[in-house]
């Protein structure tokens, strides 16, 4: 039983990281109908920037929650800027091009980040500094041993998700985003600056991905320039499973994915870990092509 609860906690914390990335996918898909393949690379950039930032300011020497938050905020600002640049230079010129061209560009941007990452950061894995330190004995309830790192990750991810929900559902900007994702042309006609909203959506998505990068670095300290691609794909799977374009769907899908992955690793073979996400995806999409919480749209002539 204890082992089971342990797996649930591990799965939830993994799922929370997926959720942060999946939200970015679902936001961008909502406003642009584009699978932003380069989104996973934002996680990678976030992890690397976080690492360099923490090393430069020697935050690992006095571990603490303030150092972690500082790194998180700085990383989110930087990846947000990168997201803005990507949208501005790669996607915006293709605004009126067929969707398939956008998809191919996204693949191109993703590969560019991966391999120029190898050029800049070196292809060997590096180690993310230990930003927080906990006394493990205090984190016990009976036999149950909580990993404080995972609780921290869970907490931060939760806060970010709530902030995002508020942004999308309670603010004027969020209303703009929802309007653009409903119908871009109509939204423009009603005076919503669609281009700016799309740009902002990219910034928000990339910032969340950057935060996810720092959290990944905390939990799995070995980071390399190719880490983003599989993580990104799996998060996208989570978003699709939940119903793409739907925020709570993305979170639900991500948690389900995190849990199922953890259970496969815990009770079956760990090497099947990467296949489970895609098997999950194929089954769900064949059963409900619009995802668990998605709305089925009928195509008209």
């Amino acid at each position: 039983m204890n082992e089971f609860i342990q797996h649930v906690i591990n799965g939830l914390s993994l799922g929370c990281i997926y959720a942060l990335v999946a939200i970015g996918y679902t936001l961008v898909f909502g406003v642009l109908s584009l699978i932003n393949f380069a989104h996973g690379e934002m996680v990678m950039m976030g992890a690397y920037f976080g690492m360099y930032f923490a090393k430069h300011f020697k935050l690992a020497e006095e571990p603490g929650i303030s150092g972690l938050l500082l790194t998180l905020v700085a990383t989110m600002i930087v990846t947000g800027c990168i997201g803005w640049c990507v949208e501005k230079f790669a996607y915006r010129p293709l605004k009126n091009a067929p969707r398939i061209n956008l998809l191919i560009t996204a693949v191109g941007v993703s590969l560019l980040f991966q391999f120029s990452g190898q050029l800049i950061f070196g292809s060997a894995p590096q180690f993310f500094p230990q930003l927080v330190e906990f006394n493990l004995d205090t984190w016990k309830i009976g036999e149950l041993q909580f990993n404080p790192l995972q609780i921290t990750v869970l907490g931060i991810a939760l806060v970010l998700t709530v902030v995002l929900q508020t942004l999308v559902f309670k603010t004027r900007t969020g209303r703009g985003m929802r309007a653009v994702s409903f119908n871009r042309d109509l939204a423009s006609l009603l005076g919503i600056p669609a281009t700016r909203v799309i740009s902002l959506t990219f910034v928000v998505g990339a910032a969340l991905a950057g935060a996810a990068g720092v959290l990944v670095g905390l939990v799995y300290p070995k980071i390399d320039p190719l880490m983003g691609s599989l993580l990104g794909l799996k998060s996208f799977v989570a978003a699709v499973v939940g119903g793409i374009g739907n925020l709570s769907g993305a979170v639900l899908g991500a948690l389900l994915l995190g849990l199922s992955e953890e259970f496969v690793v815990g009770y079956l073979a760990p090497t099947y870990r990467d296949a489970i996400a895609f098997a999950f995806l194929i089954i769900i999409l064949l059963w409900r092509p619009s995802g668990l919480l998605g709305v089925n749209r009928i195509e008209k002539v």
Partner: peptide, 11 residues
């Protein structure tokens, strides 16, 4: 479209 792309990639 995109859905098919991601499913085939998963396959």
């Amino acid at each position: 479209g995109d859905y098919l792309a991601i499913v085939t990639l998963g396959f």
